[in-house]
């Protein structure tokens, strides 16, 4: 039981960063980015280049790759999404799918379809009583918690954080209060780019690096975000943890390969019963 809880928390933390990124971009741009799965894959491969091809230590490769990918995310926004900003949300949805397909196939072209792994030393798992925690899980735990803390501090206590929250809350008022929207949008893509690329590294550590890796995370990430109430970034983290733990405990009654079905059922139940999210009530809209 303790082991299931630990695994569930780690699975939830893996979802937390991309869910936070998705919710962040949604809150400011009102657009659900379906390319987020491909973003995750792309980040993982960029870091793979640094780590394996160029021989950097993983932490350095992860840092460099995350920043590089963040810049790429801003560039994609400029090229693909910005010209469509004034169209309907559905148009942006389809465009984001186009972006996803294009990115994923750039990766397939250069890296092929075979799975790869980061160059890290294999270490024995740590035992705490009867709970086992391997080094990858420990890394995930630490990286995600630190990243979440940083984002939370930025959100709560900095000028940049107030800027993003102001635009998410009331874009017109933010403009007349002197906030330039395009700058906020760029910051949002930078932050979510870093978060998604980092989560790509963590997923790659936890499993393999392969072109499909982000695709399998798309549904859980969306579900976690909807659980949190889609425009509420910090609640998305709570949604991710809830979903991770639920998926893990569901393995008691369902085969492991049906995790996705658990996710889907959670999402359907949620959409039918509480479409504003499990934790979404605090977002004041009236």
């Amino acid at each position: 039981m303790g082991q299931l809880l630990v695994n569930g928390i780690v699975a939830g933390l893996l979802l937390a960063l991309p869910a936070l990124a998705l919710s962040l971009t949604f809150s400011v741009l009102r657009f659900a980015n379906y390319a987020i799965g491909s973003y995750l894959t792309c980040g993982a491969y960029l870091v793979y280049i640094g780590n394996v091809v160029l021989g950097m230590p993983l932490w350095l490769a992860a840092g460099a790759g995350a920043i590089l990918f963040a810049v790429l995310a801003v560039a994609i926004d400029w090229l693909a999404y910005r010209p469509l900003r004034d169209r309907s949300g559905v148009t942006l949805l389809v465009a984001s799918m186009g972006v996803a397909i294009a990115l994923e196939n750039v990766i397939r072209f250069f890296a092929g379809n075979s799975p790869r792994a980061y160059d890290v030393a294999v270490a024995r798992p740590i035992r705490l009583g009867d709970v086992r925690l391997n080094h990858e899980q420990l890394t995930i735990l630490m990286v995600v918690i630190v990243a979440l803390a940083v984002v939370w501090i930025v959100f709560r206590f900095t000028r940049l954080g107030r800027m993003m929250r102001a635009v998410a809350d009331n874009p017109d008022l933010a403009a007349v209060r002197g906030i330039t929207r395009s700058r906020v949008v760029a910051c949002v893509w930078l932050i979510s780019g870093i978060l998604v690329a980092l989560s790509g590294v963590l997923v790659g550590l936890d499993a393999n690096i392969e072109p499909q890796m982000g695709w399998t995370y798309l549904l859980p990430v969306f579900t976690a975000t909807i659980l949190g109430g889609i425009a509420n970034p910090m609640a998305a983290v709570a949604g991710a943890l809830t979903l991770g733990i639920a998926e893990e405990f569901a393995t008691l009654v369902m085969p492991v390969h049906y995790r996705m079905i658990v996710t889907f059922l959670v999402m359907v139940a949620l959409l039918l019963l509480r479409p504003w999210g499990l934790f979404g009530t605090r977002w004041v809209t009236k």
Partner: peptide, 24 residues
């Protein structure tokens, strides 16, 4: 064959975005 498939799909992905922008 897999490289060609990747190129083909890359064109589809980019084409979708370009068309939505310039020829909605």
């Amino acid at each position: 064959a897999s490289e060609l498939a990747a190129i083909r799909l890359f064109i589809v992905g980019v084409g979708l975005v370009v068309l939505l922008i310039f020829k909605p």
